[in-house]
Structure formats: structure tokens, C-alpha cells
């Protein structure tokens, strides 16, 4: 991953990285190192439980990177993000089960359905004031869950179970925990990289402009509505793929997995990690998904701790633990470092 040029609420003073630690954190190859660690982890511990926890964490990273597009890049607070995962998981589960297809073949259908869901949720609401948008997305999240719970095609409250695996070639079973873990990690890494790349594209800059000042962005000729809708659709696709992996991982999908709490957890990962900074978000997602497993015995207190943490972080560090560095005036410098940034408007 290359240097992030995001602008946020970050402190205005950006000095050169000083200590060894911050040099490590700002290192361009940090992403590859993280991927390397993820790929090597099963050689250290490969019990079914460890693999299960690590796979869940990887899927959670995918969700957080998708929500980061919506909240971090574009500044649209989405409190019902898990609905997109539900759409993905149910679509792939229903189709795969009905036609006895491996889950990979449901990808086109999931793409169509999640883009549709993004359009349906985004189109009427994106003209709204930002705080209205938050409540409406929350409402949509609840509508999705209740609908899944009430319909017969989604299996009602028990949901769908016995979902086939991702794919099967001869004796090679993709559902073998270690194999599935590797598939998940590679897919998630690709999506995280793609999201980071998107953030640095022309569209990504438009998103940040909208986030910082929508009226100014509009005045500068950015079609804000279209740009916001695109953020929504990208977020939806990321969520949908998270849903496919989720369905394949658990082999079961039920409405209880898509309650508001789950949306809130993904949001926390994004906020704690540092909105807009993909690396921070990945770390945030790992912390949020692994910490409860480490604290399984304290399960009742963890949400209290999370709530207090959110308040404290926002009050003392509104930009998250590891916010995106740099701001637009630095761009001239960046262009020298990275010629790819030239040519963008």
C-alpha cells in the first residue's frame, strides 16, 4: 500500500515521521507485512477454533473496509450497513441451495442484488440532511432484518442452513477450515487494496471533497448526488461479498446475525481505527472482532466498554486512533513522489 493522502479532521501539523514506531506505521509495505502475517498465522496455530476466529475477523475486515468507503471517504453516516451483508448472504444462500450450486456461481446475482439494494436505499435518501440519513439507514437495516424474518423464501426466523461450500474441485474441498481461511484472507486482501486504491482515485478525491464541504464540491462542478450514490453502491458491493463469505463460513444464515448491534460494531471499527485511513480501519476491525473473543468471559461488559470507548475517543480524538495523514496542500509534494497522482483533476 502506498502513502495515503487522505484529508480529514486530522491535526493540522504534519511533521515528518520521527520515531522508529511511527516510521514502521507509515511504512509503505505495512500492508504486505500484515498480509504475510495473516498468511503465516495458521502455521502457528491451526485449531478449528483459531481458524474460525481468524476467518470471522477477516470477514469483519472486509465489512469495515466497505463501510469506510461510505463513512470514512464520503462522510455519510450509515447505521444499517449490515443490511448489505444480509442481502449478499441471503441472495447467495438461497440461490446456491435452490440450484445446488457452489457459492462462487452466485457472485453475479449477488452483485446485481447488492447494487440494486444500494440504489434502493441510496436513491431516495441521499438528498437528505446528514443526520436524517443516519436514521433512515438504520430504518432500512431494521426493515431488511424484519423482512427476512417474516418471509418464507428467506426461511423465516430459522433462516437458511445447509448452504453448499464456495466450490469443490475433485477432492479439493474449499470448506476445509484452513483452505477456507486462505481463500478468505486473499479475497479480503484484494478488496481492502481495491478500497484503498478507490480512495486515492479521482472519485476518492471527489468523495473527500463532498465530506469536507458538500456545497463547495457542488459549486466546483462535482455531481454530489451521483458521487454519494457511487459510494453507497461500492459500500454495498463490499458488504455483499462479505455476505457470501459469511454464508460459506457458517453454512447458515439467520436474521439474528443482522441486528443493529452488528452494524454498530462495524461502525465502531471504522471510527476507532480512524475514518478514511484504510490501514487504521483494518486494525480497528481486527481489534473489534478479536477482542470479544479474547474476553469471552466478560461478554456482558464488552458493549459497555465499547460505548464508553466511543465517547472517550470522540471527545479526545475525534479523528480516531490512527487517522488519515496529510491534507490537500501537501499534494504538490506527493505528486513528486507518486507520478500516478498527476493528471487527476
Amino acid at each position: 500500500m502506498t502513502e495515503n493522502v487522505d484529508t480529514t479532521l486530522a491535526p493540522k501539523k504534519v511533521g515528518a515521521p520521527q520515531s522508529f514506531l511511527s516510521r514502521v506505521f507509515e511504512s509503505r509495505q505495512l500492508g504486505w507485512v500484515a498480509l504475510g502475517i495473516a498468511l503465516l498465522a495458521p502455521f502457528v496455530i491451526a485449531t478449528p477454533y483459531a481458524l474460525n476466529v481468524m476467518t470471522t475477523a477477516a470477514i469483519f475486515v472486509l465489512l469495515a473496509s466497505g463501510l469506510n468507503i461510505v463513512v470514512g471517504y464520503c462522510g455519510l453516516l450509515d447505521l444499517g450497513y449490515i443490511a448489505f451483508m444480509a442481502v449478499g448472504a441471503y441472495t447467495s444462500g438461497i440461490i446456491a441451495k435452490a440450484f445446488e450450486l457452489p457459492l462462487v456461481f452466485t457472485i453475479p446475482a449477488v452483485l446485481v442484488m447488492t447494487v440494486l439494494a444500494g440504489l434502493i436505499i441510496g436513491a431516495p435518501t441521499l438528498r437528505l440532511r446528514s443526520d436524517y440519513l443516519a436514521i433512515v439507514t438504520l430504518g432500512f437495516g431494521e426493515i431488511t432484518r424484519i423482512t427476512a424474518n417474516n418471509l418464507t423464501i428467506t426461511g423465516g426466523p430459522s433462516g437458511i442452513f445447509g448452504i453448499p461450500g464456495l466450490f469443490e474441485v475433485g477432492d479439493f474441498d474449499s470448506q476445509e477450515p484452513a483452505v477456507f481461511y486462505y481463500i478468505t484472507v486473499l479475497v479480503v486482501a484484494a478488496f481492502v487494496l481495491a478500497a484503498a486504491r478507490l480512495g486515492k482515485s479521482r472519485l476518492g478525491r471527489a468523495w473527500r471533497f463532498v465530506r469536507e464541504d458538500e456545497d463547495a464540491a457542488e459549486a466546483m462542478g462535482i455531481h454530489t448526488y451521483k458521487v454519494k450514490l457511487l459510494a453507497y453502491i461500492f459500500g454495498a458491493i463490499w458488504g455483499g461479498f462479505g455476505g457470501i463469505l459469511f454464508a460459506a463460513h457458517l453454512s447458515a444464515v439467520s436474521p439474528q446475525s443482522f441486528i443493529f448491534l452488528q452494524s454498530a460494531l462495524v461502525l465502531m471499527a471504522v471510527v476507532l481505527g480512524g475514518m478514511g485511513n484504510m490501514r487504521g480501519v483494518v486494525i480497528g476491525a481486527l481489534v473489534i472482532s478479536l477482542l470479544p473473543e479474547l474476553l469471552r468471559d466478560l461478554s456482558d461488559y464488552r458493549y459497555l466498554a465499547f460505548g464508553l470507548l466511543l465517547v472517550v475517543v470522540m471527545v479526545f480524538r475525534p479523528q480516531g486512533f490512527w487517522p488519515a495523514r496529510g491534507y490537500e496542500p501537501e499534494r504538490r509534494k506527493m505528486e513528486k513522489l507518486d507520478p500516478a497522482l498527476k493528471g487527476a483533476s
Binding site: G75, D300, Y303
Partner: peptide, 22 residues
């Protein structure tokens, strides 16, 4: 602060109250 930050704080307060009482 930006509205997003305040809204997220409000979500945090909501969680703290709920699970504090729990």
C-alpha cells in the same frame, strides 16, 4: 466538531446507558 463525530458520540452514550444498566 463535525456532525458525524457528535452523532457517533451519541451512539456511544446510548450503548453506555444500555449496557451500564444491564
Amino acid at each position: 466538531a463535525p456532525r458525524l463525530a457528535v452523532l457517533i458520540t451519541a451512539v456511544g452514550v446510548s450503548f453506555s446507558l444500555e449496557y451500564g444498566i444491564a
